[in-house]
Amino acid sequence: MTDISIEPLPAKPPRNKWLDIWTQLGKHKGAMLGGGFLLFITLGVLFGPYIWTIDPQKIDIRNRDLRPIFTALFDSDAKVRWANPLGTDQLGRDGLANLMAGGRASMAVGWTAMLLTLGIGTIIGVVAGYFKRLDGPLMRLTDLFLSLPILPLLLVAVTLFREPLRASFGPEGGMFILIVSIIGITSWMPTARIVRGDVLALKEREFVLAARSIGTTQTNMIKRHILPNVLSPIMVSATLGLATAIITESALSFLGVGFPSDFPTWGKMLADAVDRMENFPERVLWPGLAISLTVLSVNYLGDGLRDALDPRIRGR
């Protein structure tokens, strides 16, 4: 009995929580693989254009419709050229340069729009679920946004904001801001509803009652008790949101609301290549693979992060 009372103080201070999370994340193979790939693709699109210096918009009409270099292995008649290892498109623009330039735009749009969506969705969801008085108005607002037809909304936004944004940020920068905000404000609603649903249930759990009884403030309650417990649907929303944002961007440029037509993005490359997918399967393959693998790696990273952040799993 007395042994317990004289138990010595811990020899070293408790490990930092974030360090713990990091170690746990390191043990998650999927997360490491996903994170590694994400880093690779990000570095690739950021610094690739400095190594592979061909201008993606440069048209070389004599060398159009080139196949990727490896097709020469099984088809000796294929038009290939070492200068364009991934082939060229119907106007002779280099495939590799386009893939990297397209990746810059798609990654930037995807991440920014996804974070914006998550931000708005989570805040509205948590607030609506936690504060009963705000639930009604916020959820009716969500209903309203879900009902608004997107296409007219886009056209209105373009009419009102394109010129001022173009004047202050240039044609591409202005369009970027417009696209990102449009995707952001038209896709936060599912996240908000999902988060709210979970918060409604969490709020009635015993641990919340316990926390409240020891006088936890509202802010702390949300930060320490509610948010960590709705993390997994948010992570799923994030991965799905990234994919949706990249695809939506291409749908926007199809409607003429997106980037200038000679500005490549993965989604647009994919959309443009669909008509020729039988003759030139690689043109759908590269951007399709790039989008899928990016989304997949974000998904694995999200899985790992969720596991690492869950104290019940951590340390097992």
């Binding site: 799905l240 695809i247 669909v274 997918m277």
Partner: peptide
């Protein structure tokens, strides 16, 4: 979790979700 089934399910569903119907539709037609 993290069984073969889970890994395969994750892979297929994420690929399926990130490939837009304007591509899968014509692909299936072809």
């Amino acid at each position: 979790q993290y069984s073969m089934f889970d890994q395969a399910g994750t892979f297929v569903s994420m690929i399926g979700f990130s490939i837009p119907p304007f591509f899968t539709g014509p692909l299936l037609i072809v």
